[in-house]
Every structure is written in structure tokens, then in C-alpha cells.
Design a binder for these strands. Structure first.
Length: 287
DNA sequence: ATAAGGCCCTGACCGC
DNA sequence: TGCGGTCAGGGCCTTA
């Protein structure tokens, strides 16, 4: 499942493939994949646009597009930039392939490029969404800061968690608290910080909150260095745009290690369900 | 305002 | 072998 490190990796690896490429044809196979505008309008509108910028916010990919010149209009006429926004959700993947490479049956969006290749959006579970918009801030409005935002200080986080009775694990997944943490890195960060995922968030001491913030930042950075985590079946797991796997799953210390010995103390890793999500933790190291 | 539960989807997996 | 049932899970929505 793509979280911040996977999205960052995929975006950086797509950039050299897409930079400057113009969309010459668009096909939408599953209209609900397009959140906005209407899928037909989406396909008609994106043709002619070129990929000009590559950014990430939380788990969202933002592709800044350059529009073709409008006849009769000054070449330097000011326009709000248009953005293609992509959220891979659970099983989405983006990759570029030669035109003659047949699309997988789970491909819901194809953008033909001016160099003869095609951008594929494949998503077996169909949770992924794309947007075409002049106002990306509206799509991203609910997101909290990036976890490495300097403004996100331990003190600010303590204030945000004060009085909250939900399990800290549930709040780690709340994209309005901070953007980009999903189930894998929430569990890994809680282990690194030595905090029980079931703890009511408001009961964490300032020292624990500071440790947790540092752990989230450290785990995400380490996962980016290893190009993300690839777990599960080959058809639905995370793969990089070139089809290769990430490597951070080899560094997981608790995620999907239920029953296996803790790498620090040897106690069996336990699994509980919090906020409808599996949570994996060491009952001895995480208090 | 916060918390909890349902919903969307389908591949994988389990038990018979 | 085949079949039905269950699970996973991000983000959004509804309900309490």
C-alpha cells in the first residue's frame, strides 16, 4: 500500500519519464477513477497538456501541467496552472510503457504521450482517484502538515493531541494531523518510539510525543532511502514505476510480524485491530 | 468537536 | 476442483 515513501519514490522515478511529455490521447476505462471533472471532460481536457512539474503532498502526487498556447492569445498570457492529481490509495500504480505494451485488465486510465509511450494507471481494487483541477488546494484542504515540516514542533503536536481519547495509532493515520503516514509506518514508528498503539493519544507525555514525532520522521526518511515497502501479492502490492520492489519491508520490525520474536527483546509480536486497521506491536518494548 | 462504523472494491486465502 | 465466505484497508461519509 503506497504511503508517503512509496508515493515519493514513484513520483521521483516517473519525473524523468514524463518531464516535458505531452498528452496526445486519453482513455478512461473506469469512470469512477476520475474524481473530477466528469470522466469524459477529463479525457477531453487533458489532451494537449504537457507534464511540467512534479510535487507530493501527503500521499497525493501532483503533476503540474502546461497547456498548449491558445490561438489568438498572447503567448505570455497568465493562466492558473492546471494540475493532474493522483492518489494511489491501496493498490494503484503508475508506470510508463511503450505503446505496443498491452494494458493490464486492471488498467483504468491511459494517457498516450507524444513520444509514442503511454502512462498507465492500474488499480485492481479501484480505490485510487485522479483529479484534473486549477485549484489543487481544494483537493488537499483536509491535509495536515508534512511530517518533516519545521512548523510541526513537539509542542505543537502535544497541543493537537491534548484531551484526545482515541488510540494514538488511530490518530497517526489521521491525515489532518499530519499527511502521509499509513498503516505500515504508523506501526513501525510506534515501535521505534516504544509506545503502545492502544494508548489514548492525550495520555502521552510531552517526551513521548517528541519521541514519536522523531520516530515518524526517521522511519519515513529511512523508507524513502530504501524506495518504500513492498508486501503482499505481486498483483496488488506496491511496485516502483519500473516494476521493481521497494526494500524497506526487510527493515520492518513489527508490521506483519505477528507471532514472530521481537528483534529487540524476543517477545512474540502481537496484533490487535484499532480504527479498523491491523496494528502490530511488541507488548514488552511498547508501553 | 470527537469517535466510531459503514462503504467502496477485488485478489488472496481458508474450510469444506 | 470448486465454491462460498472472509479479510485487507485509505479516505470519505454518516451517525451518535
Amino acid at each position: 500500500m503506497p504511503e508517503l515513501p512509496e508515493v515519493e519514490t514513484a513520483l521521483r522515478e516517473l519525473e524523468p519519464e514524463l518531464q516535458g511529455r505531452q498528452v496526445v490521447r486519453a482513455w478512461v476505462g473506469w469512470p469512477r477513477t476520475v474524481a473530477t471533472p466528469d470522466a469524459t471532460v477529463f479525457a477531453a481536457t487533458i489532451v494537449g497538456a504537457s507534464f511540467a512539474g512534479f510535487e507530493r503532498r501527503g500521499k497525493y502526487m501532483l503533476f503540474r501541467l502546461e497547456e498548449p498556447p491558445v490561438p489568438g492569445e498572447a503567448a505570455d498570457a497568465a493562466h492558473a496552472p492546471r494540475w493532474l492529481i493522483v492518489h494511489l490509495r491501496m493498490t494503484g500504480r503508475l508506470h510508463v510503457a511503450a505503446a505496443e505494451v498491452e494494458a493490464d485488465p486492471h488498467t483504468h486510465l491511459l494517457l498516450d504521450l507524444d513520444d509514442g509511450r503511454r502512462l498507465h494507471f492500474r488499480d485492481p481494487r479501484k480505490f485510487g482517484r485522479v483529479w484534473l483541477t486549477d485549484a489543487p488546494e481544494a483537493v488537499l484542504a483536509r491535509l495536515g502538515p508534512e511530517p518533516d515540516d519545521p512548523a510541526l514542533t513537539p509542542e505543537a503536536l502535544v497541543a493537537r493531541l491534548a484531551g484526545r481519547r482515541a488510540p494514538i495509532k488511530a490518530l497517526l493515520l489521521d491525515q489532518s494531523l499530519w499527511a502521509g503516514v499509513g498503516n505500515i509506518y504508523a506501526d513501525e514508528a510506534l515501535f521505534a518510539a516504544g509506545i503502545d498503539p492502544r494508548r489514548a493519544a492525550g495520555t502521552l507525555s510531552p517526551d513521548e510525543v517528541a519521541r514519536l514525532l522523531g520516530a515518524v520522521q526517521q522511519v519515513l526518511a529511512a523508507a524513502i532511502l530504501r524506495k518504500g515497502s513492498s508486501l503482499g501479492s505481486a498483483s496488488t502490492n506496491y511496485q516502483r514505476p519500473d516494476g521493481s520492489a521497494g526494500g524497506y519491508q526487510e527493515a520492518h520490525r513489527v508490521f506483519q510480524r505477528t507471532g514472530q520474536p521481537c528483534l529487540v527483546c524476543g517477545a512474540p509480536i502481537e496484533r490487535v485491530v484499532l480504527a479498523q486497521r491491523s496494528s502490530h506491536f511488541c507488548p514488552h518494548c511498547q508501553r
